[in-house]
Simulated scan of single mutants.
Amino acid sequence: MSENSSEQQFVTFSLGEEVFAVPVAVVREILDHEDAFKIPHGPDYLLGLRDVRGQGVPVIDLRLKLGMTATIKTPHTRILVMDIPLANRSLAVGVVADKVFEVIPFQLKDIEQAPDIGVQWRSDYIHGVVRREQGFVVIIDLARLFSGEEVALDVTPSRKFATA
C-alpha cells in the first residue's frame, strides 16, 4: 500500500464534458438519482432533501453551484452522498453528478494548481488539476465550495462573503 503522503484516492465524475474529483474519504455512498423533497425559497442549486438511511440530506445540483447549466437527468445520473469536514463539524450533502466513473489514485506530486484564467466557476473552489491522457481532472475543494455564503445549508453566519 502506498504511503499516505505521496498518494490519495479520489472518486471521479462528470459534469457535462468536464471531469471532476473529490477525495474518496468524504464519499459515504453513491446512489441512483431520485427526485428530492423540494424546500421552498432555497437557492436554485438546492434541489431539496433526500432520505439517506434515516437522515435528511440536502441535494445540490453541482452544475448550477459551479455556474454551469442545470443537470438533465439520464440513466447515468448519480448522487454522491458526502460528509464534508468543515470548521468544527461535518456537513452531510448529496451532490448530483452526470456520471460517476471510478475511484482512482493520484500522486500528490501530479496535482497542479489551478491556472489563473477565465473559467465558468470560481477558481477558489478548485483544489488543483491533474493531467490525464484524455484531458484534465479538476479536484474540488469541498470545504471552500460549501462554506461561506451557503446559509441554506449552514447555520453558521458567513464572515467571508457579503450577501447580495
Rank of each mutant, 00 (worst) to 15 (best):
E102C: 13
A97H: 01
D35V: 00
I79Y: 12
E112S: 12
G16R: 12
Q55V: 07
D35T: 01
S14K: 07
V81I: 14
R89E: 10
P58I: 06
V96D: 00
D110Y: 12
S6E: 03
D44A: 09
V52W: 11
A25L: 07
A97I: 00
I111C: 00
L86N: 13
F106G: 01
T163A: 10
S158Q: 15
D124G: 03
V103R: 04
D110F: 10
S6H: 03
V103H: 02
D35Q: 01
D61E: 13
R63D: 00
G148V: 05
S6P: 00
A97T: 01
V129S: 12
V27A: 11
V151A: 14
H33S: 02
R28Q: 07
V27T: 09
I117D: 01
A36F: 07
Q9R: 08
K73T: 13
S5Q: 12
E18K: 07
R122Q: 10
T71C: 04
I117N: 02
V59A: 00
F146G: 02
E133C: 09
L64I: 05
S158A: 13
V138C: 12
R28S: 10
A87T: 10
F136H: 14
G16I: 08
L66F: 07
F13M: 03
E7M: 09
E3Y: 14
M1V: 08
T69L: 13
E150A: 03
P85I: 06
E17H: 08
V24Y: 03
L91R: 06
T69P: 12
P43V: 13
V100Y: 00
L47A: 05
M82E: 05
R122N: 14
F10I: 00
E18A: 05
P157A: 11
A36S: 13
V24R: 10
P23C: 12
F146P: 03
S158C: 15
V81M: 05
L46W: 10
L64E: 04
T74M: 14
V52R: 15
E34P: 05
F101M: 08
E7R: 03
T74G: 08
P105W: 12
A162G: 12
V27M: 10
M1H: 10
F37K: 07
Q120S: 11
P43K: 15
G94C: 10
T163K: 14
R78N: 03
I39K: 05
F161T: 04
D51N: 14
Q134E: 08
D32L: 03
A70F: 14
D110A: 11
V155I: 15
R132P: 03
Q120P: 06
Q134G: 06
D141H: 10
Q134F: 10
L62W: 03
D61F: 09
T77I: 07
I139R: 05
V22Y: 06
H41Q: 06
I126R: 06
T69K: 15
D141W: 12
I79E: 02
I79R: 09
I30F: 11
K38H: 08
R63V: 05
V27P: 02
E7P: 02
I139H: 04
V95L: 14
L49D: 08
I126K: 01
G135L: 04
D116N: 14
K109M: 11
L145Y: 04
L91F: 04
V81C: 09
D116G: 04
P105E: 10
G16H: 11
G67E: 03
